[in-house]
Every structure is written in C-alpha cells, then in structure tokens.
Simulated assay, not measured.
Amino acid sequence: MSDPRIEPDEPRPEDVAPDDALDQALDDVPAGPSRAARFRAAAGRAGERARELDRSPALQRVVKRLRGVLPGDAHFGDPLSLGGARHVEAAGRAIVGLTGDRPGVVRELGLGGVQLWQSVLESFGRGIGEHEVALVFTDLVDFSRWSLAAGDDEVLRVLRQVGEAWEPPMTTRAGTIVKRLGDGLMVAFADPAAALDAVVEARDRLSALDVPDWRPRMRAGIHLGWPRRVGGDYLGVAVNVAARLGDAGRADEILISGDVLRRLDARTVETKRRRRIHLKGAPEGLEIHQVLSTSR
C-alpha cells in the first residue's frame, strides 16, 4: 500500500540516484560564491602570505644565524654534504627536493633541524665516521683588509706563494688537503703529532714570505674526532670544533683541543691552557690549549 503523503509522480528518497542527489544539492546552493570557493580564495591568500614570509631576507638571515650557533655543520645542505647514503643525508635531500634550490626560511629551518639531529646522534656515538681524524684549519690573519687595497693580481700572486709555503709541510706528512678556503686550508691527518708538526713548519715557512705593506701571519686550530667522510669532504661536530679553534686564534697562534694534547708526547710540546675562549657549538667541557713550543 502506497504512502498517501508522497505524490505518485514524486520520486521517493531511496529511488534518487547519487548523481541526481548531487544535482539537487547543487541546485539548492544560492547564487554567489560557494563556501568551497571562498575557502579556496582564503587558502590562496594564506599561501601567498606564507610564500612571502618564506622569501623574507630578514627572516632568512635570522635562521642562518641560528644555524651558525647550533651544534653540527652549519653548511649542511650543499650538494657535497648530501652525497652520502645515511639517513641524515637522505633527510637533507628530501628537504632540498621539497623546497627546491631557492633559499627560504622553511628550507633553512628544515636543514637546521637535520643538522641538530646529526649532532645529537654523534653525542651518543652514532652517525659518526669510521676513522679517527686530526682536523686542521688554517687562516691568514688580516688578509681581507689587505686584499681590498692590493688588487686582484697581487692577491693571486701572494696566494700562490702562500700555497707553496704551507701546503708541502702538510702533504709530506701524509696530510690530505680537504679544502682550499681562499686564505685558509682544511687538512686531515691520521696522526695528531704529524698534524702539529705540519702546522708548525707551515707557520715558519709562511713567516719568510716578503709581501709589500703586509706580513702574512697564520693562525691554526687542531681537533681530533670521528667526522663522517662524504665524497671528498668531512662533516660533523669535530669539523665544526676544529674550524672554530682556527677562527679563535691570534696571529701566529696554534690552538689545539685537549683530545689532541692527550695524544701527543708531553716531552715534545709545551702548551698553555686557554680558559677564556668560548666556542659556539663546541661540546661542553672542551679543553683548549695554546701551543707555545715544540721540540720534534
């Protein structure tokens, strides 16, 4: 028996096909922008604002400064540092792939997080390299000021002389030159004693150079650790500490960590503890010593 409340020609709800129901629902939408259209417009405006913030030079500078004080390699994210097969490199490649090659706040925050992640793993003895390495960073003091007035030709001539002065002591002691940093070097040694001997000789050879209006003087830092080898480079907290030691030195000064000092023959080196140096991103309790003389 049919329901007298439903007209014979009116379809019952259960007889309405899904497509017909959708058409009826759309017919009931009042004229003007729909809720979905308004949502899409708002989302578009929010997305554009987010892109503007991501491209903000001021915010990018803030995030890069933050990465500079975090433990680990503040340059993590370049093609060389992402060339490994470990999970950290894979995460870095994923971030670069999602954000593209353009600089941005989101990209820097993501890479900074992976940088910090790697340093935490290394603090627990994970994610480190397979071999102990003595890392050396050298730098020419006051080079930037002199080079501005010297001109490109003179700078190139002097840098060639500097390379001839301080690279042979490194390579003849089985040191591997990892990077030439313009006015500096990064060198890796298997033996901390060989690293110190090379740096001392390089400093002595450099002092013999005759450059008009400037005296080439070197500062250096040496640290011992287990950095990860990626391609032709080394990455990790040990690299960061060695670089900071090199930056913290004065003209003609060689700074070494306590880890290096404990591997040297105490009869061949005289040192002085430097207690007023604070290295950003360095492990807590790091000992810093100034090399006063060697007798090797």
Rank of each mutant, 00 (worst) to 15 (best):
A85D: 14
R86V: 06
R86L: 12
R86A: 08
V88A: 11
A90C: 03
A90N: 10
G92A: 11
G92N: 14
R93L: 03
A94S: 09
A94H: 04
A94M: 11
A94Y: 05
I95S: 06
I95D: 10
V96E: 12
V96T: 14
G97M: 05
T99V: 03
T99H: 15
V105H: 01
V105Y: 00
V106Y: 01
V106T: 14
R107Y: 07
R107V: 06
G110D: 09
G110L: 07
G110F: 07
L111Y: 05
G112M: 11
G113I: 02
V114W: 08
Q115H: 08
Q115E: 15
L116Y: 11
Q118I: 00
V120C: 09
L121F: 08
L121I: 00
E122L: 06
E122Y: 09
E122Q: 14
S123A: 14
S123V: 05
F124N: 12
F124T: 11
F124M: 14
R126G: 05
G127K: 07
E130H: 05
E130K: 05
H131V: 13
H131T: 08
V133W: 03
L135T: 12
V136T: 10
V136L: 10
F137V: 07
D139F: 03
L140M: 13
L140E: 10
V141S: 09
V141T: 08
D142I: 03
F143C: 02
S144P: 02
S144T: 15
L148M: 11
L148T: 13
L148K: 12
A149D: 13
G151D: 00
G151E: 01
G151N: 02
D152C: 01
D152M: 07
D153F: 11
D153Y: 04
L156F: 04
L159K: 01
L159P: 00
Q161A: 12
Q161E: 15
G163R: 15
G163F: 14
A165G: 00
A165K: 00
E167A: 08
E167F: 01
P168T: 05
T171K: 13
R173Q: 08
R173T: 06
R173L: 04
A174N: 15
